[in-house]
Design a binder for these strands. Structure first.
Length: 502
RNA sequence: GGGCCGUUAGCUCAGCUGGUAGAGCAGUUGACUUUUAAUCAAUUGGUCGGGCGUUCGAAUCGCCCACGGCCCA
């Protein structure tokens, strides 16, 4: 960073606490290397607890276990000529016991000057206190990093939502539950990756910057490539690229990566979010429902140890077979007064929708109207794990038509707690049907729907080479993690959620 | 985009119908060689989110703005 950028840096908050710590840092600089990098950390807190918590005082004393341990000081208690402190590392917390007579008067006085948040390396021998807490009796103590900013008070921790999101590092230092959430997130992604790999799927990476944003109905972010002087779109979905790979013979393929959608923010929407998409040739949407059911059930067992999920006051059972019903069945279940035989009649659906104060467009057919009715009256009632099938063709431009009823497609969405977690279908592999559907989307776009899809000519060309019968699915990882961690907002499961600049 | 709520010390929060801004923890100084939200004594600390207005007087009332939270579209 040069001087100019420094001078452009807005001043950040300073206060007397920071000033006092800066003075201590200045002294450290005068005494030598203030930021040493030669401490050799050999043990983690948790492995020491695992190995030695079980031993009694006498056994520990006999073994005289020497350790070299480092961490952030989260707690310090000075009692005259001896002090206790807790050092926290990535794995957990370990107590240290520092005595003047063991490390010398000069070092001990320096230790008394330290602040909560300082990072220490210690060498010493393990012992147990009167209350049987595993503790390092320190023989050598090194201040590795001076902390200049005071941490939140230990009892309440950091509760301010905004600060948790903007300064996630403080949140992670202070809140065990936040660390737990992000650990479960990591474990979730690892589990899924392993599950699919074990099932013969191959993981790939496809473009995040696309010339034609496809694969979903959403508004994209636009960016610009200088050398080529052209607009590019951040992807809204990887779908069309993954299906090109199926054409190319990668018959079972998946990607876990970020999608970007230029839409409003809410507790369920972040502009960038993580999606799993996977495709399997010679499978249909029912195979994928079965796979999803098994994967979600096993995932829950693996990462939270139970298939009974407590979520914001509700309880969901992932053990018993997931319910399955069609869109039309769901609409009738929650609107028993409707005429089931007229749900494919656009005039009928329009009058019902308008009676529900749904804002409709003239161009909408029965399928779109039916989905609006479904979303308004049924979706948020789907609490227990439920697959909804038979989505109207009109709202499923990439899905294969149903053989018996071309009004609907071989598609499902998966709901838990009233929230859509997954969307899958037998893929439309008829290039001529796909071309027509794209054409329909283009006319929607021309009549003002800026979320409608573009015509992707190369994708049609790929299909013309022949894509085997295939089923594909997308699972929203963030929402899945919300469910598993009992998180009320998507921002709680994204390390650095999007915020307006301070 | 609309509605409601919030923004006060480093952190967590009080602050009534307008009258010199408070607590706990943290910090500072001192005591204490097995503490667990340690204890004891003393003590510092504020542009009350920003701006404008009403008023003799505004953290408090009104308007505007910023940021956040929740709900709705």
């Amino acid at each position: 960073m040069n001087d100019e950028t420094n001078s452009n840096t807005p001043p950040i908050d300073e206060n007397k606490y920071i000033a006092l710590r800066r003075e201590k840092l200045t002294q450290l600089r005068e005494q030598g290397q203030a930021y040493p990098n030669d401490f050799e950390r050999k043990e983690f807190a948790q492995e020491l607890h695992d190995s030695y918590d079980g031993l009694n005082r006498e056994q520990l004393e006999e073994q005289a276990v020497a350790v070299s341990f480092a961490g952030r000081m989260m707690f310090q208690r000075v009692m005259g000529k001896a002090s206790f402190a807790h050092l926290k590392d990535m794995s957990g917390t370990l107590q240290i016991f520092v005595q003047r007579d063991a490390i010398g008067e000069e070092a001990y006085n320096a230790f008394k000057q330290s602040d909560i948040g300082d990072i220490y390396g210690v060498k010493g021998v393990l012992f147990k206190t009167r209350t049987d807490e595993l503790t390092v009796k320190v023989s050598e103590l090194t201040l590795l990093t001076k902390s200049l900013r005071p941490l939140p008070e230990k009892f309440h921790g950091l509760t301010d939502q905004e600060q948790k999101y903007r300064q996630r590092y403080i949140d992670l230092i202070m809140n065990e539950d936040s660390r737990r959430v992000f650990k479960i997130r990591t474990q979730t992604i690892s589990f899924i990756r392993q599950y699919l790999t074990d099932a013969g799927f191959i993981e790939v990476e496809t473009p995040m910057m696309q010339v034609i944003p496809g694969g979903a109905v959403a508004r994209p972010f636009i960016t610009h490539h200088n050398a080529l002087d052209m607009e590019l779109y951040l992807r809204i979905a990887p779908e069309l690229y993954l299906k090109r790979l199926v054409v190319g013979g990668i018959e079972q393929v998946f990607e876990i990566n970020r999608n970007f959608r230029n839409e409003g923010l809410s507790t369920r929407h972040n502009p960038e979010f993580t999606m799993l998409e996977f495709y399997q040739a010679y499978a249909n949407y029912e195979d994928l429902m079965n796979l999803t059911e098994d994967m979600v059930r096993q995932l829950a067992k693996a990462v939270v140890g139970t298939t009974t999920i407590d979520y914001q006051g509700d309880q969901f059972d992932l053990e018993k077979p997931f319910e399955r019903m069609t869109v039309a069945e769901a609409v009738m279940k929650y609107n028993p007064d409707l005429d089931a035989s007229k749900l494919e009649d656009s005039d009928y659906c329009r009058s019902i929708a308008e009676g529900m104060h749904i804002k409709t467009e003239q161009s909408w057919g029965a399928g779109k109207l039916l989905i609006e009715i479904f979303e308004k009256t049924a979706e948020d009632q789907l609490m227990q794990p439920t697959f909804i099938t038979a989505y109207p063709t009109e709202v499923s431009p990439l899905s294969r038509r149903n053989d018996e009823n071309p009004f609907v497609t071989d598609r499902f969405e998966f709901f838990v707690g009233g929230r859509e977690l997954a969307n899958g279908f037998s893929e439309l592999n008829d290039p001529e049907d796909q071309a027509e559907r794209f054409q329909h989307q283009v006319s929607e776009k021309e009549s003002g729907d800026d979320e409608a899809m573009h015509y992707d000519a190369d994708y049609i060309r790929a299909l013309e080479y022949g894509m085997p019968p295939t089923a594909g699915e997308g699972i929203g990882i963030d929402r899945l993690v919300m469910l598993l961690t009992n998180a009320p907002s998507i921002r709680d499961v994204i390390l650095f959620p999007h915020m307006r600049p301070e």
